[in-house]
Design a protein around this nucleic acid. Structure first.
Lengths: 262, 262
DNA sequence: GAACGTCCTTGACCCAGATCAACCACGGAA
DNA sequence: TTCCGTGGTTGATCTGGGTCAAGGACGTTC
């Protein structure tokens, strides 16, 4: 039940430290410029956004926002990874979203957070105070249009995840998660395709379990099984090599071409 | 793999029959006027929508759209209930959305259906050809604003459903579904509150199973168990009476107040 | 009114994944 | 160098819900 204020206070010193190298960042060379909620903005619109934006940093493991707490800002993830989770009174938790760079946090028009947001890695967020952002959104169709597009994408992703949660086996769930992270990572780096895919797994076994509706033991066992069967190769605990993406997609129970949605 | 055209052809006769009593309906006395995607439109905007709209009817059990088929229209559900489902190659299916009156079908900018849409009851839809609708959306912020709001609501609902699918027991899943349908039904009728809630269950046991990631046998057993324990009373197979909503919410594992999202 | 199809219920059994528990690997602090 | 704390693995056992199978309650058709 710690409040946003408390968690912000706890991290104040670090925030100030890191602010030094991010506070004056120019939108023009922002790494998420072309994918975030501001992607469609014209230069003059960007200037106005620039005036109301500020950066905040969080360390791996910190809670950015607690569900139910007042939420007076919205934000884009600039770098790092965060999770959106829901918790039942008895402590059962389910991750309902994975926030990667360019993803949007918060809902215009809503003044309280609906989910816990937790930084999985060190993270930098580009924040806007909610009220000014809402006013600007009303005057700037480019922002609302982009936000609609992003929200529809998230809805598709959530629905794909409902199939995973409701109907897939533990092995298929793990394969699905690895395929998604691998694909997003590949899209991000845009490196010369076709070689075997390698990427860092940014989640602990427990976080994977929360995402997949499993226990961490089952996650561990199924990762070991996929390794044993040659579907993936582990380099340490967190680095994954996928020799054959189609094989992985097969194990995920997906269409061979991986779906046409994205 | 039946195409949209085929399913439309199959139903053409009935469509024409029913069109008689819906084709000239005026937006002004439309039952979903204040909740659908057109809710915020001014009279002149409504007039323009009126020009490009047309009604289509489907009978219970008919497939409205097949996943992957070309989709040249978007639509609002006027009356009746439809489902959005995803299917794996081996036949496993997961419902990913329940479409009630005023809900929106289709995605502007996407030319193929991402999910199967099936009419659960007889249904009437208010359709717009996609291209004109997209053009109109670009010129009419009121439509885009409302669609954003509705999409954000759907995303919240999908995320709540992820918790149900990932972490709840079979009994909790059934109780959650009954609570949601009961609440939506109560909101629709807006009758004098506080008495014991009664409503029709618009889904077969199989559809409930598809929604909840269960088998129909488990659904049947858990419905019987909730009845045996006095949480619900069955009047026939499909009519549900809830003597104590708080008790039902408790069984669903929800906060006693039922959540503050809606 | 018999025969069918659809939807639903109930029972017997089984298994995937949860639970409980022990232990390993690594990194940072004393 | 040992001591912990965190994250991960693996084994033994249990169980919720799946699977397979039989049968009941209807409405509809001929």
């Amino acid at each position: 039940m710690a409040s946003l204020e408390k968690s912000a206070a706890r991290t104040a010193d670090k925030t100030v430290d890191k602010t030094a190298d991010t506070a004056h960042r120019d939108c023009a060379d922002c790494p998420i410029r072309h994918r975030a909620v501001c992607a469609r903005c014209e230069p003059d619109e960007l200037d106005r956004l620039d005036e109301i934006k500020y950066y905040r940093s969080f360390e791996a493991g910190q809670t950015v926002i607690w569900s139910g707490d007042p939420m007076d800002f919205v934000a884009s993830v600039v770098s790092g990874i965060a999770t959106l989770t829901q918790t039942m009174e008895d402590g059962r938790t389910q991750m309902v979203g994975l926030l990667l760079p360019s993803d949007f946090v918060g809902r215009p028009g809503r003044d309280r957070a609906a989910y816990d947001v937790v930084a999985t890695t060190d993270i930098v967020m580009c924040c806007f105070r909610r009220k000014p952002f809402e006013q600007m959104m009303a005057r700037t169709p480019h922002i609302a249009q982009r936000l609609l597009e992003m929200t529809l994408d998230e809805l598709d992703a959530a629905r794909e995840w409902m199939l995973v949660l409701g109907r897939k086996t533990a092995r298929e769930k793990i394969a699905s998660l690895l395929a998604i992270i691998g694909r997003r990572d590949a899209a991000l780096h845009m490196d010369g395709r076709s070689g075997p895919l390698t990427f860092d797994l940014p989640l602990t076994r427990e976080a994977m379990a929360d995402y997949l509706g499993l226990t961490l033991e089952t996650v561990s066992r199924q990762v070991s099984a996929l390794k044993r069967d040659g579907v993936i190769v582990l380099e340490g605990k967190r680095r994954i090599l996928v020799p054959d993406m189609n094989r992985l997609l097969e194990e995920a129970g997906d269409d061979s071409d991986g779906g046409m949605l994205f």
